[in-house]
């Protein structure tokens, strides 16, 4: 079942004194529920514009975005329902949680705003959410964000995104601000949750390795255009478009480094 559909979406920014910048140029793709699409591309390729359109910070210049077959509503009850179905995990867990509020507050708000559970069950639901992201509710529930580590905060952010029981999760570089040693843990958590809940995930990243590890399909963006799309392994291992080849060549390859360092295959890259 098609969950999200980008239909010939174009976004043009007017820049003072510099004419226009086309951030997205005729981008079309679909995302089925339960599917993970990795959106890769370098800075300025239009990844974040897609996230901004989905979170309604920007509106497309032309084209249409549909969730569950319906165009994104502008206001009212439709907008509320749309927001409830699509949630975002932000890049920087140090900035995405309000330093003033407790973890309990962060998870309670979406529950109350979307009336997910009756008030009397809120507390139990908050605890359940924390357990879902493998945090100990007894320890973290009344803490403030600054008392948690980066990985723990990102888990809280994921729990917050899941609180309204969305169908689609937009993860904008969810691990790029985390310590390398905990990235895999967070990504595996996302993958588990996605499998268990049948979530659609749009994974925005510039890291080809995690995109391949985590996504079913990969979409390569370059200067606002989709230049390549296909199953994750295909796109990464057998890139067709020159830009994808460049991207791949630019990312460090641990095997190649090991080989050249040990002198087996010196210099050949």
């Amino acid at each position: 079942m098609t969950l999200l559909e980008f239909d010939a979406v174009t976004k043009v920014y007017a820049v003072r004194g510099a004419g226009h910048i086309t951030a997205l140029d005729d981008v079309s793709f679909t995302l089925r529920s339960g599917q993970t699409i990795g959106l890769v591309g370098q800075s300025g390729s239009g990844k974040s514009t897609i996230a901004k359109i989905l979170t309604q910070l920007e509106t497309p210049t032309s084209g249409e975005v549909r969730l569950d077959g319906r165009a994104i509503p502008r206001r009212g009850a439709g907008l509320r329902a749309y927001r409830q179905q699509l949630r975002m995990v932000f890049q920087d867990p140090f900035a995405s949680l309000n330093p003033y509020h407790s973890i309990r507050y962060h998870l309670q708000r979406p529950l109350r705003l979307d009336r997910i559970v009756p008030k009397s069950e809120e507390d139990a639901e908050v605890r359940r959410l924390l357990e879902r992201v493998r945090l100990d509710p007894g320890v973290v529930i009344d803490r403030r964000p600054h008392e948690l580590s980066g990985g723990q905060r990102q888990r809280v952010a994921i729990a917050r995104a899941l609180a309204s029981r969305p169908k689609l999760l937009v993860a904008d570089e969810p691990v790029s601000m985390l310590d390398v040693s905990i990235r895999l843990g967070v990504l595996n958590l996302l993958a588990d949750l996605q499998r268990e809940e049948g979530l659609g995930v749009l994974y925005i990243t510039h890291d080809l390795a995690t995109a391949r590890h985590f996504s079913d399909e990969i979409l390569v963006l370059n200067q606002g255009r989709v230049v390549e799309r296909g199953p994750a392994d295909d796109v990464i291992l057998n890139p067709q478009h020159p830009y994808t080849q460049e991207l791949r060549a630019a990312s460090p390859d641990p095997d190649a480094h090991f080989a050249s360092a040990s002198g087996i295959d010196g210099g050949a890259l």
Binding site: R83, Q91, L97, P99, Y100, H101, L113
Partner: peptide, 26 residues
């Protein structure tokens, strides 16, 4: 423009709550 305000907006928090509860304490 901080992420936590964006997150509150994405949650559908009404404007008065964003200003009084999310911003004023900060």
């Amino acid at each position: 423009n901080r992420d936590f305000i964006q997150a509150a907006r994405a949650n559908g928090e009404p404007l008065r709550r964003i200003i009084t509860v999310e911003m004023l304490p900060n």
